[in-house]
Design a protein around this nucleic acid. Structure first.
Length: 349
DNA sequence: AAGACGGGGAC
DNA sequence: GTCCCAGTCTT
């Protein structure tokens, strides 16, 4: 806590509040910060808060607009859960963010650690957080070997985290241990020379900072190839709404087809007359659990005869920015919009 | 208990 | 290229 007072982070956008902070920005930031670095989150947080300044405005919003503001941030279930939780708070909690730890953790998208973080920062509730930073600090200081994702290792880390909580000053403590992990006790180049725990840290004393915490067990990354249809007509491109579950759930994306299928046939099968059909440069997109090879096909079609459904939309290429697109799809379409004078010219022809 | 779920920055 | 981040939910 002493270290945090002088060396911690005090100017993050969601910290600009007094001793009785609004739980809403705390909540939004904590959800965005799940598995996502501070520097990545900041611009998303600013945009989100400008558009949805309070729980009520978020509860009234369309899910599509919430997802559009989340586009590029990843783990889109976070956005769907955030939105659902806002509506739930409006209905079941009278529009007030719940105070009780159990009630907070009951909300969709909020687990044990996030509930503790919100409770600590917003209400000074005394519960332990256990995020990637805290896991790293504890594993090193106390010499907890093994991968933190392992159930036994994680249980030990939770036990440590709970046992270390101060009687008072939970905000400074929670922010402090996170900041220590993020700023000093970093993964590869920890600053043990200026760390307040160097004298008592097992990893430092025994020269084990490289192996603590233990790495995730290696696993071969599955590869998958898919073709995507970039159907254009009059400077617009056709998008489909993806199912709510699964990858890119609820986002707008290009129609997928098994690689190797005849794309002209695929486009015609959707009810279009194909004018031209040509391959675009193929894109490799890495997930944590999958490597996806995308083969986009640019298909100019004549007047769309396909039935208009809510799950299908013709989007002007200029309107990409406020649409909820997966990152690789955004890149494919952005490249098209730039070099894309010719595409529209061909469409016009 | 394990897998699904994004994207990007650091090395 | 590899690792992993202010984790949670589903199976």
């Amino acid at each position: 806590m002493h270290w945090h007072a002088t060396h911690g982070r005090h100017d993050l956008p969601w910290q600009t509040m007094g001793t009785r902070p609004d739980p809403y920005p705390v909540w939004v930031s904590e959800i965005m910060l799940q598995q996502t670095r501070v520097d990545t989150v900041i611009p998303y947080f600013q945009r989100f808060m400008a558009r949805f300044p309070d729980i009520s405005s978020l509860a009234r919003a369309d899910e599509d607009e919430v997802l559009a503001l989340w586009s590029g941030l990843g783990y889109y279930g976070r956005a769907r859960n955030l939105h659902a939780a806002a509506r739930l708070i409006a209905q079941r909690h009278g529009g007030r963010f719940p105070y009780d730890h159990a009630a907070i953790q009951q909300l969709p998208g909020i687990g044990r650690s996030t509930a503790a973080a919100i409770g600590a920062f917003a209400f000074a509730r005394r519960r332990a957080v256990l995020d990637g930073n805290v896991k790293r600090v504890l594993a090193r200081v106390f010499g907890v070997a093994g991968w933190p994702g392992d159930r036994v290792v994680e249980a030990r880390l939770w036990q440590l985290a709970e046992s270390l909580l101060p009687r008072s000053g939970i905000r400074a403590y929670t922010q402090g241990i996170m900041d220590l992990g993020a700023l000093l006790c970093t993964r590869t180049q920890p600053r043990c020379d200026v760390c307040p725990f160097a004298a008592e840290c097992v990893a430092h004393r025994e020269g084990r900072y490289r192996t603590l915490p233990g790495p995730r067990p290696g696993k071969a990354l599955p590869e998958k190839t898919t073709a995507m249809l970039v159907m254009t007509h009059g400077g617009r491109v056709m998008l489909e709404k993806r199912p709510r579950s699964g990858i890119w759930g609820g986002l707008w994306s290009l129609p997928e087809h098994p690689a190797g299928e005849d794309m002209v046939h695929a486009a015609m099968h959707q009810g279009f007359q194909v004018l031209t059909c040509e391959p675009l440069p193929h894109v490799v997109h890495g997930f944590t659990h999958l490597r996806l090879h995308i083969r986009p096909w640019l298909v100019a079609v004549s007047r769309p005869t396909g039935i208009a459904t809510p799950a299908r939309v013709w989007l002007p290429l200029r309107a990409l920015h406020d649409t909820a697109l997966p990152a690789p799809v955004r890149r494919i379409l952005a490249a098209l919009a730039v070099s894309g004078g010719e595409a529209s010219a061909r469409d016009a022809a």
